[in-house]
Amino acid sequence: MAHLNKSDALRQGIIIFVFLAVLTALEFFIAVTLEAVALLVVVALVKAGLVLYYYMHIYKLSQEADDEDEDRHSLAYKTATNRLGLWLFLLSDSFVFGGLAVARFNLLGLTRPELNQLLGLAVTSVLLLSSFSMNRAEVSMEHGDRKNFLLFTVLTFLLGAGFVAGVVFVEWPTAIAEGVTPSANAAGAIFFMMTGMHAFHVLTGLIFLFVIWNNGRRGVYTQEKHWGVEAATVYWHFVDVVWIFFYPALYLIGKLI
């Protein structure tokens, strides 16, 4: 919401982050005590809705879309076209993740592999923090605050890198030690495929973060013209939304095999 002033934007970002954190904790609590699948789905949908609306600004898609008389060569018109293109890409990409989720429930049903749930919560928290930090970076750029933009972009990068490292260098060896290997059984295969595909997307997100940090450092972006920042932000949050669904699907839903 570019119309918000700086402090309101900060307040909104924090409130959404607190909501997401509380819901994540609630989700964990539901999973370890109740085994209520429907409730977990509802929580995940609410979390995804919050991110889509407040962090990814999906409502911007319907703005400026119908102005026929608008100058087609204006920056605003071109940015809106770019935004549509990006969201179409995300729609397409979500079918990959949707397909993986279908495969997971087809093969495993309401069972799940033996994984360390606390470790899952830890990496999830890191990714959630990175989403908040990403939001701070974007809001800073929207208000022309380059210093904070660079600071929060670096912070997001570090948190994202921490997430990938946590998955690949901590979570995977832990799982393998407990017998969940790619080739052991279908559950292991699904676990590595889902986390691997997601980690690959986080990695590409890290590349985008590096690009916007590098360009921001050299003064390419301004308060009015920073489509690159918006695109990287929306992509980053999209990867977070995917994890909002994958995390319960892998760690929380169902009985142990």
Binding site: G99, A103, N106, P182, S183, A184, A186, A189
Partner: peptide, 21 residues
């Protein structure tokens, strides 16, 4: 490549899943 058993019934996989996807 990696022996991941998505569609291998011996590992709990399901060949029919491939056909759905």
């Amino acid at each position: 490549l990696l022996g991941m058993g998505f569609f291998d019934p011996a590992k709990g996989g399901n060949p029919v899943l491939f056909q759905h996807l």
